[in-house]
């Protein structure tokens, strides 16, 4: 990547970045960098990354950042935003942090309509720990803990985050899924998500991403899995929120 193509919000000193070759994280972070540039938000933003591969982004941006774990990026950003509403708060997490160990935080922030932006990278595996099954691992997909392929009988169906959140979140929330194979649309989704935060609401973007290291795929297979297999189970697009919360539930007494 040339110096010129780097988003201004990136921290040049930490480049080249630490992700594996072919990893989608760099692309998601590029889209985020461009979204921050476009909205001129880098001076107002705090970026929090989680444990797992997302933690390698701890000094990725030229913005105040911190590292935490177990999906706790979300409550840290919720707490920060509540105490400092002028701040733009971005919680960056993987599918393990967001959909398994920290799911309660994700759902609760969406239900409370906390004005933060959560970006969740879905690469269908726990990558940094060595490629175990994630909530998003597809049926039949081989991982270290599903060596014969994920079996529905044993572990149920893969977790569809945006679909689940859309049903639960506050109607004002913004919920979308993009993919690193279509970086411009992904950037657009992130811009919209950040804008929704600026309007005082919760926003969430899941980014379908790649992990050739743990998938043990070459470049062509990697891209094929992302574009054909993952995208067919995980449709990209926007998910209107609040399907389950539209009825006014105000108790009148």
């Amino acid at each position: 990547m040339s110096e010129l193509s780097m988003p201004r919000s990136w921290n040049r000193e930490s480049k080249p970045h630490r992700f594996c070759p072919g990893c989608g994280h760099g692309l998601v972070l590029k889209a985020l960098g461009e979204a921050l540039d476009q909205l001129q938000l880098s001076r107002r933003t705090v970026f929090a990354c989680d444990i797992g591969c997302s933690l390698l982004a701890w000094d990725f941006f030229d913005v105040d950042s911190l590292q935490t774990h177990h999906g706790r990026t979300i409550p840290v950003m919720v707490g920060l935003k509540r105490a400092q509403p002028e701040q733009v708060a971005v919680a960056y997490t993987g599918d393990g942090g967001g959909y398994a160990i920290g799911l309660q935080h994700l759902i609760s922030a969406a239900v409370r309509d906390d004005a933060i932006t959560v970006i969740l990278v879905n690469n269908t595996t726990y990558a940094m720990t060595g490629g175990q099954m994630a909530p998003t691992t597809l049926l039949g997909q081989k991982t270290e803990t599903t060596p014969f392929g994920r079996d529905r009988e044993e572990t149920g169906l893969p977790f569809k985050g945006p679909e689940a959140l859309a049903a639960l979140a506050s109607p004002e929330a913004y919920i979308a899924r993009g993919t690193v194979s279509k970086i411009k649309p992904l950037t657009k989704l992130l811009v919209k998500a950040l804008q929704r935060q600026l309007e005082g609401h919760f926003s969430f973007v899941e980014a379908l991403s790649t992990c050739p290291t743990n998938w043990r795929t070459n470049a062509r297979e990697t891209w094929g899995f992302l574009e054909q297999v993952m995208s067919s189970y995980y449709p990209v697009g926007e998910f209107p929120a609040g399907a389950g919360a539209r009825e006014e539930a105000q108790l009148t007494s």
Partner: peptide, 18 residues
């Protein structure tokens, strides 16, 4: 918050903002 983990980490978030 939704649990004690969140209470602790949200407190950290508030503290980080000063």
């Amino acid at each position: 918050t939704e649990d004690e983990l969140s209470a602790g980490f949200a407190t950290i978030g508030g503290i980080l903002s000063g």
